[in-house]
Write a protein that binds this DNA or RNA. Structure first.
Length: 497
RNA sequence: GACCCAUUAGCUCAGGCGGUAGAGCACUUGACUUUUAAUCAAGGUGUCCGGGGUUCGAGUCCCCGAUGGGUCACCA
């Protein structure tokens, strides 16, 4: 749209036109509401309320957005909202003078206001500020959503998150909690001597997970590059380099479907500790998540979408084959051939391809029959090698790996291995993945020669752990959708009509 | 990707069998110096998501498309 068209379009809306006229009237009086560069604030709304006893009668300077106005002739009330809440202003013509009072009457809900006044309590007991002087710090040119119901339309809530934040208190809370969860993670790991590092987002080989990457192009090098699908392989290079405890909290990008649990970009924390195995990682996972729960929620008993979740330690630990046995009665540890495994799975009603091997079958049966039942925190141990190309084999079965996933509310929350450190085996695993890739599996791992070479210099036995931060935040904030814990979730662009 | 549902005023929502669109909030004007979903009086809201079709007549029925939500599939 041309600029004139935009202006025309806005003026087509009566409510916007009225506000633009008010703006012009202010400008005509030489009062540009956008000229203020700063405003000295002495207190926020919460402080005024919490420290009322000592502030009663004192002068304070506060600022915020007008959320409601109640006029009473020559006096008015209005509510302004700052980051920590709302507080009522009382504006009397006798106090501010007739000219200023007229200006105040023309203010709109949504305007950003700075005021100086004295703290007092109204007859009905509401802690308020009696305004002496006020200043319009920014004019709002568009009407806010309805005050009582807030903004409900999910499309608008995600596209215009700022409106969601202004109108819906709980939303702000969720994102404050998200920040506190991440801070607690850092505190926990930093206190244990972990080093926080940053590894490349732009990569020439996207490794460390089974997922389709986003592809972009680097002009100067004239090469396609991938956005990372995991932080894993670079963090392990750092273990090879001699750091013994590292972690990264970072954005990951996967070119997959979107739903209630998946956003194309999301956040993980991965950590690696030399000379540890996956049992140590299980202990660490328990301590980390319960620490966060205590720090952020102050309890280990939480409710997620009506389900009671008890994080009290220790959490259940069971091998994948044993879990399958518990929920289906079938013992896949006793199954030795691929044919036998496929036949057994098909008897259970699981769709299996002829090319699927025993490990793929076990994984598919697990996902079909077990996952959804793992509501209380449960570690599932020992994953088939086919789906775990970066994990060490178990001692008891060379086709199983020392890998666990943590499930809570039937969802995967964490994934960890005794990291494979045998470069010869690692190369074989990549070759196996490359075959699957060649056969059309776009999510199979890419061969990463550079990573194998690094491993050839010698990598200590290492435990590694990855946690889906968004899902953890969902659990701790009782959020139904991943979009409720990501400030600006991915949205299809609105086409202009 | 498949299926189901939704889309009506700035926002939250009603609109029976197809007869030309409503409420509340917000807004405008007026009254009101302790209200708080303030109150009282009066007033204007509109690309009924877009495009076709059926019909004398479509917000309503049919088809195509857009966006969102949900379920399933895949993934974390």
């Amino acid at each position: 749209m041309e600029r004139d068209d935009i202006i025309q379009y806005q003026e087509d809306n009566e409510l916007i036109a009225i506000r633009r006229n008010k703006l012009e009237a202010l400008m005509a009086k030489g009062l540009n509401p956008f000229s203020r560069k700063k405003y000295q604030v002495t207190h926020n709304s919460k402080e005024v309320k919490e420290q009322f006893e000592s502030l009663d009668g004192c002068e304070v300077s506060i600022a915020g957005r007008i959320m409601a106005k109640r006029g009473h002739g020559k006096a008015s009330f209005c509510d302004i909202m700052d980051e920590l809440g709302k507080i009522q202003l009382y504006v009397k013509m006798d106090e501010v003078g007739p000219e200023a009072y007229e200006l105040f009457r023309d203010l709109d809900i949504g305007d950003i206001l700075g005021v100086i006044g004295t703290v007092f309590k109204t007859h009905s007991g509401e802690i308020s500020v009696k305004v002496k002087t006020f200043e319009l710090l920014a004019k709002s040119l568009r009407p806010l959503p309805e005050k009582w119901h807030g903004l409900q339309d999910p499309d608008l809530r995600y596209r215009q998150r700022y409106l969601d934040l202004i109108m819906n208190d709980k939303v702000k809370e969720t994102f404050v909690t998200r920040s506190r969860i991440i801070k607690a993670m850092r505190n926990f790991l930093d206190a244990r001597g972990y080093l926080e590092v940053e590894t490349p987002v732009l990569q020439t080989t996207a490794g460390g997970a089974a997922a389709r990457p986003f592809i972009t192009h680097h002009n100067a090098l004239d090469i396609d590059m991938y956005l990372r699908i995991a932080t894993e392989l670079h963090l392990k290079r750092l273990i090879i380099g001699g750091f013994e405890k590292v972690y990264e909290i970072g954005r990951i990008f996967r070119n997959e479907g979107m739903d209630i649990k998946h956003n194309p970009e999301f956040t993980t924390i991965e950590l690696y500790e030399a000379y540890c195995d996956y049992h140590d990682m299980m202990d660490l996972t328990e301590r980390l998540i319960t620490y966060i729960a205590q720090e952020v929620l102050g309890t280990l008993k939480i409710t997620y979408q009506g389900q009671e979740i008890d994080l009290t330690l220790p959490w259940r630990r069971m091998r994948m084959v044993d879990a399958i046995k518990e929920f289906t009665g079938e013992d896949f540890q006793a199954v030795s051939s691929d044919d036998q495994a496929r036949a057994l799975a098909r008897r259970l009603g699981v769709e299996i391809k002829d090319s699927d091997t025993r490990g793929n079958v076990i994984n598919a049966v697990f996902e079909t029959f077990v996952e959804k039942h793992l509501v209380q925190p449960t570690f599932i141990l020992d994953y088939p090698i086919e789906v775990s190309p970066l994990a060490k084999r178990t001692d008891y079965d060379p086709m199983m790996t020392e890998r666990f996933e943590l499930f809570i509310t039937g969802r995967e929350m964490a994934n960890a291995f005794s990291e494979l450190n045998d470069p010869l085996d690692q190369r074989q695993r990549f070759i196996m993945q490359a075959k699957q890739r060649a056969a059309g599996d776009e999510e199979a791992h890419m061969m990463d020669e550079d990573f194998v070479m690094a491993m050839e210099y010698g990598m200590p036995p290492t435990g590694g752990l990855g946690i889906g931060v968004d899902r953890l935040v969902m659990l701790f904030t009782d959020s139904y959708s991943i979009r409720d814990v990501i400030l600006f979730p991915t949205m299809r662009p609105k086409t202009s009509q």
